[in-house]
Each structure stands twice: as C-alpha cells, then as structure tokens.
Nucleic acid binder design. Sequence first.
RNA 1: GCUGAUAUGGCGGAAUCGGCAGACGCGCAGGACUUAGAAUCCUGUUUCGCAAGAAGUAAGAGUUCAAGUCUCUUUAUCAGCACCA
Length: 807
Amino acid sequence: MDMKSVEKKWQTKWEKAKLNNFNKKDPDNKLYVLEMFSYPSGAKLHVGHWYNYGPTDSYARFKKMQGKNVFQPMGFDAFGLPAENFAIKSGIHPKDSTEKNIATMEGQLKAMGAMFDWNAEIKTCEEDYYKWTQWMFLKLYEKGLAYRKEAPVNWCPSCQTVLANEQVVDGACERCGTTVLRKNLTQWFFKITEYAEELLSGLDTLDWPEKTKSMQRNWIGKSTGCEIVFDCESGDEIMVFTTRCDTVFGVDYVVLAPEHPLVEKLTAPECKEAVDAYVLNASKSNEIERLSTTREKTGVFIGAYCTNPVNGKKIPVYIGDYVLYSYGTGAVMAVAAHDERDYAFSMKLGLPVTQVITKKNGEETVLPYCEDGILINSLQFDGLYGEEAREAIASYLTKIGKGSKKVNYRLRDWLVSRQRYWGAPIPVVHCPECGAVPVSEKELPVKLPYDVEFKPDGKSPLAKHDGFMHTKCPRCGKPALRDPDTLDTFVCSSWYYLRYPDSKNDRMPFDPEIVNKMLPVDTYVGGAEHACMHLLYARFFTKALRDMGYLSFDEPFRRLVHQGVILGPDGNRMSKSKGNVISPDTYVETYGSDVFRLYLMFGFSYTEGGPWNDDGIKSIAKFTDRIERLVQQVKDVTEQPKALGAAEKELSFVMHSSIKQITRDLENFSFNTAVARLMEFVNALYKYNTETADRGFLKECVKTLVLLLAPFTPHMCEEFWEMLGGKFSIFNERYPVCDESALIKDEIEYAVQVRAKTKCKVMIPTTASDEEIEALVKGIPAVADAIGSNPVKKCIIVRGRLVNLIV
RNA sequence: GCUGAUAUGGCGGAAUCGGCAGACGCGCAGGACUUAGAAUCCUGUUUCGCAAGAAGUAAGAGUUCAAGUCUCUUUAUCAGCACCA
C-alpha cells in the first residue's frame, strides 16, 4: 500500500467532512481529551511529540467510536526564553522564528493524522490570547492574589532574568544550568500559598499518578507544629516554629537565621564584630554551598539570652546559616539531644546536650534520638508519649500565652516577573504620584512592540523601548512608565485549557457557560516534568477563577496520564551532543505515520518509555502487511456467513475475548497489550483461513478486525474499510462490543494439581459440579499415581482455572 | 536523609481477585516454498537434563492448599525533594 497517498487521501476527506471538529450542539456527551500543547522551540516534531500525541489520539478515536463527542484541541505555548535566546544568537526576531516554527509544526501535526480540532487552535503569543493572559493578571490583582514586593529572588546571570523557585534545579537555572544567584528585587508574585491547603487536599480527589501527587504534596510541604515564644532580656520576643514541641524542655539554645531582623538588635557589643563578619559571609555564600547537607554546621553566639517559657531556663541565642529565614519564623529552638542538625551544631561548638526523650521499650537511647519516645526531665509532662505529649504541651503553651498550634507550608508564592522580551507584558503602569496602577481592562492588550533591542544586559529589553514605556497614568492621567517586565510563560499555560472550548471569544477569555460544561478536562496527557510547575499553577488558576465566580468546578484535570520517555538506541536521553537523536521523519517517510505510531504503542509500556529499537518497527510493518493480505483475500467475498461450526466458534471466542481485552486496555492506556491482543486475533484468523473456511464468516471477522484496529492506524483502516465496502467514515462506526455469550465454552481446560504441583491438564465440561470435577480428576491415571495410597484431605476448585488436591 | 517508583528469559515487555509465570513481539534454531536469495508460511525456543524430572520472577525470611502478586528485612536502579526545624 502506498501509505503516502493513502494518508493524504483520508486527511483531505476528514478535513472536508469536518470529521474532527467538536460538535458544539451536544456538550452533554462531551469527552475532553487534552495533550499538553507544543512548545515551538525547534522547527520539527521530535519522537517525544509523536509519543505523546499518537497513542493519545488513538485513545480519543477509540472513545469517538464508542459514541463520545470528543474534543481534542491543539495549540502552541509560543512565548518563552528559547526563542529569545535564539534571536540573540542569530538575529532572527522571536516572532518571526516562532511563527515559522509553528507553521512547520502545524503541517507535521496534520500529517500525523491525529483528530485535532484545528478550529480551536490557540497560540499564546498572539494578541487575542495574551490580551486575556493580561486580563488574568488584572483579576488576580483585584482579588489581592497578585502583589509586588522586594524579596530575595533567584537570578540567572546567563538568562539575565529572575526565576521561580520551581525553575531552579539543584541551585541552577533549569534552562541553561548556570548557578543561580540571590538578588534583592521588587517583583510581582502570585499568592499561590493562599491555596496551599486546598491544593494539597484536592489531590485526594484526582485520578492522577501517585508519583505526581506525592511530588506535589512534597512540594507544598505541609507541616503541623507549634509556634513558641522565647522572651529576651531586652524585652524582645523570639518566635520559633517546631514540629516537636514535646522536646521543649530540652532546648539548649535558640538559633536565628543570619538575615533575621532581631540579629542586629540583640547582638551584644562585644560580639558585634564576629556576628557582622558571619552575616556578611553568609550573604556571600551562594545557594549551592548553603544547600549542601554535608556541609559542616557553623554559627556564632550573639551575646544575648532568652528564657524557655516552660521551665524558665536561661538559654543563649546563636545565629547559624543552617536556619532558613524564608521558612517558618526564621528561628529555631535547638534541642541537640533530639535533632540531628542541632546535635551536629552542638558538637561543632562544644555546647551542652539535654536529653528529654527516652525510648519506649526501655532500650538504651542513643543520641541524637529523633523518634517519638517517653518524656523525661519535663516536669508534669514526664511519662507522656509522642503525639499525646505534643498535644498536652501545646495546650499548656496556649494557656500560658507563650505559644500556639501552627501549620507551615514549604510552598512559596509564585514569582511571575521576567526581565525578558518574548512574553506577555505585565499590564501595570508605574506613576510617580499613584504608584503601581493596573491598566484598565478596556486598554488591553498592552501590546508587545516588535522593534525592540533584546540584547541582554540585566534590564528588561522593553525598558529601553521609549514608545512602549512612556504612557499616561490610568488613574491621574499624568505621564508615567509601563512595567518593563513580562510574565513567566507558565502564566500563559495556566489557563489555555479554558480557552480552547471558546477560543474565538473576543469579549471574554471564555464564556463561563460553555466552559463549565466542557471542563474539567477528562483525560490530560503529558510529560511528568511538569508535576510541580504547570500542573500546580493550573490548579491554582482554576481555584482562583472559581472563587471569582467564573468557574463552577474545583480541579482542571480529572484524570492525568504521563507518557514515558523514548530514549536513544543507546539507552540515554536523546541529545544532539550524544548523537543519539532519532528523527521520526525518516521512519514516517519509509513506513508511514500509522506504522510509526503503532510501533510507539506496541514497543513500550506507555508510561515507562524506553530505548528506541529499529527491529521493532520492522515487525510492526510486517504485522500490518499481514492484515492487508487478509483484507485483499476477503474483499470480494459476497456470500453470507453460514451456521457456526466448531472452528467458527473457536475463532469467534478469540475475537470476542480480544474485543473485551482491547477495550479494557485502551481505557487504561495499556496500548502494548492491546496491540498484542490484535496480533493474537490476526494469528487466529490465519489459522482459521484454510480451504474449508467459511468465506462469509471470515469476511465478517476481518471487518471486525479492521474496526478494532481503526484507532491505532486510522488512515490504513479507512482504506481497508473502503476496500471491504464500508461507508465513509470508519470513525462514524461503532467500536465492536464483546458478545459475552461467545465467551461461554462447553469445556474449559483445567490444570490439575496435587499438593499445589501441576500434574496434568484436562478438559472439564463447564456444567460439571464440584463433586463431578473431583471424581473426574481422581480418575486420571497420572493424578491417581501422584495421590498413591494417601487419603485426599481437601479438594480446592478454582472455577475455570484449576483443581488442587491436598493429600 | 526523605518521598515515590522499579527489579520477571538473549532482548522489548505480559500476567484484574493470590490460582498453570514468561502472553505478544524481536532475536535465534529447524522445516516448507524457491535455481538461489528476499518475501511469505509452518514448527520450536526460561534454565539444567537424553529423559523422567528438577529449579526458576533482585536477595533472605514469613503468611497460604497456592505468592511475580500479600507481610517483614536487605540490596540495586531511576525520578523528585533536600539543613523545611
């Protein structure tokens, strides 16, 4: 079969018939299947795109054939750093390179033959999209969920921009790998922490991979504990956070983060020199050094004392850079006996260690002992254990007014400003009189100018564009300057799934009435690398928009599937430097897009991925050739099927059990086993296809095969369907349904075991009672031999599978 | 260190509930067709053993009539987080 012309033929027909377009008149029967949209950094689709989109499209086609009104849109996440970095290197404007890349990718996506509804296409870099991204910013601002503050931020000196915490990997920029520096800057933040608790608890309701949920839980990092006040001699109060208030009688000292505001105030004159030196040093050390757990604990005494509220003990105050200013209260109570870090600090500085917890069962307690235990040296709380002790001490602290229960989260607010050009401008004007003033909705979009000098020098490229910068204050009308920064591209992708169902709307980002019917996304498929970024941000947006009254649902993605990664043939991640990149184009050229996608489905466990293998794709081509020969053989058969004989019943059994399993496998994204079932069915057809075969019956079976295969190899099956005399389109046909009665057999093979060892296999009529089975089995010579003269104590029968005789 | 996942033939990978381990495919071996090859079709293929049989799902224990699957311990690999008090 000449796949190239067959593909072209059916793609044209599908487009003409508008077969892939969502039927807006029947939203109640909708199924929203979404793949993460493409980032047009390279011109061509790579294997990863195919692996995400091909199998998922097969799932979508399967659901369509089951009668669902499938909505499967596609678009482009078109803003972002790579296009801008490419522009700096090549001199080609990001808009031009992006548009060119998108055009190429659109062509390739269409050639793939996926049933994307191109009517709904969106490109985040176009005005009619980023206008609404800016609108989102304004709404969050109105709600108090966007704010500006000066804070220490992650600065990538190579990309010349700030980064969100989520974009820093091992202390380095996730894009370019350059070590990230700390910088104090005034930037825009989204208050994602406001939703920390709901982002955490909502995970329980989602049909998501456990791995991803646990990553988000980890990232949100809820910890339940207690805040405790330590009064200083100076009259100041040091507030600490602890999850182990049961150890409060064992506090040896208190440690402040070097950046803690009380440091300067509390430091005694005789310690000032040492403390200043330490603080300066700490501010210079970069994140990587400070993050290292193997690093020795350091710190200095600041010459001040405070009082332990539970026992009145006078305890010294230290500073140490192992205490993070950004978490909790920026101060900790150190209990060396029951915390590894404090213990290490005490050992280093030669400080005392006070034990207040002992092991439950009386075993020797080796310090530091950080598990739960029985309290000692804790006055009235002696003898209490673990959680019980924490409860008691927490309520005591509350009673004496020196503490209270407190929940902390590791999650930080999302920094969204970027000092870059290729993004949505932040719709804010800075007025000398009125301060930061949001642009009014009517003025949107704040257009991104084309003629911009985007050579990086640490300042936003837009800051150097006079025409863009100079404007009037929306409030007082006096001359003012625009915000020169652009929004993190993750802002664009946080709401795109809401735009698809109403992508042409020019009055609103989306019509809530439409979106509330179309959402949530039923099945979302994409890479696992977005677990703590896109997938978290999108959930935050959904919840925020819900609270503003635009949405009536809580979670954007009901079911999430991560495809695995296709590695190079050498088992490593594909990369140009390793020279192991597999280009889909040459394979698609040789075998066609259907065979290519079928191999991707068969050769790997979908969620695992694995190394590319050339032999595998050849075997798939062989398989589709086998099917084509069957179709050729039966296409001109006109006779009707006769009554079923034994051979027909056997084939019918294979066919219907295949239908059952393929249906289940597709539902579970278990494509490799679904294809294996198809192969078994084809093998059975070959076995049946002898001179004595009933041609009419065979033709019916081949038609069923083609219907079953259609979601996997759409172009090829349209062609087969036409050859077999079927009507256009095969995707308007119903997916075969299993006839349970065909699965009922007269006899089933049982394994016969004696003392759990399989002795032989025997056909047993389905109608046989347990007693009959036992008698029948005992009569088999091999079994009787194995039993010998021993009495049979018990006979276990597993229906349809085995009989086990216990002697 | 913490969290999560994974570990099955020469290879990719199967095995709803605990119920015949190795489906399906690759590779390999043998055969048919062919002047020959390619393609195709058929048969075999976990290991040891001529065989009967025995062993076998990272290692070790346990529960069970029965364990790849459940429980405990250990090891290795991958991913994410990592001084989060």
